[in-house]
């Protein structure tokens, strides 16, 4: 497994092996320290001058107190089937309404918004994507990114994958 990690770091691991390894990396302390050590070694061999810098624990303890960021899936993901496109269009409209509603009425409850947005299918990812543009254009107002983003992005976490 560590040999796969080494190859992954070099851009030499097959896609099909890379995906499960990345997934596994998140929960495997041994792989994580190998990742840290291997990168440190690479930097040392390339003559980097600041090898002693290590802010991992400071950063992660600061982040532990932060709200978790949730963002829409990347825009590149496309929907190909016409039926799916229709579903997306409909969902975008709905999400738009919900987003607009939450923006208008300023309920300071992200959980509520998350519940209002239904999560019927994987296409919901697209909802988050599409409506984000809409929301980006409309959120100069009082309700910050946090609320609308959290609300609309929630289902993404449960989507495909």
């Amino acid at each position: 497994m560590k040999e796969n990690l080494s190859a992954l770091m070099d851009g030499e691991l097959a896609d099909k092996d890379a995906e499960p390894l990345i997934k596994r990396l998140a929960g495997d302390a041994e792989l994580q320290s190998a990742w840290q050590e291997f990168h440190l070694i690479g930097d040392a061999l390339r003559g980097a001058s600041l090898l002693s810098v290590d802010v991992r624990s400071e950063v992660s303890s600061t982040l532990a107190t932060e709200p978790t960021v949730l963002a829409p899936r990347s825009l590149q993901r496309r929907v190909s089937r016409p039926a799916a496109r229709f579903a997306v269009a409909a969902s975008v409209a709905l999400a738009g309404v919900v987003g607009w509603y939450s923006w208008q009425s300023q309920p300071a409850d992200a959980g509520l918004v998350a519940q209002v947005v239904p999560a019927p299918s994987a296409q919901l990812q697209q909802v988050a994507d599409g409506s984000q543009l809409y929301l980006d254009a409309h959120q100069d107002g009082a309700v910050g990114d946090g609320l609308t983003r959290v609300g609309l992005s929630q289902p993404v976490a449960q989507g495909v994958r």
Binding site: L25, A26, G27, Q32, S60, L70, A71, R73, A157
Partner: peptide
């Protein structure tokens, strides 16, 4: 971006 902070640690 999907909330996995560990990925950011990496």
């Amino acid at each position: 971006q999907r909330g996995e902070k560990r990925a950011f640690d990496l």
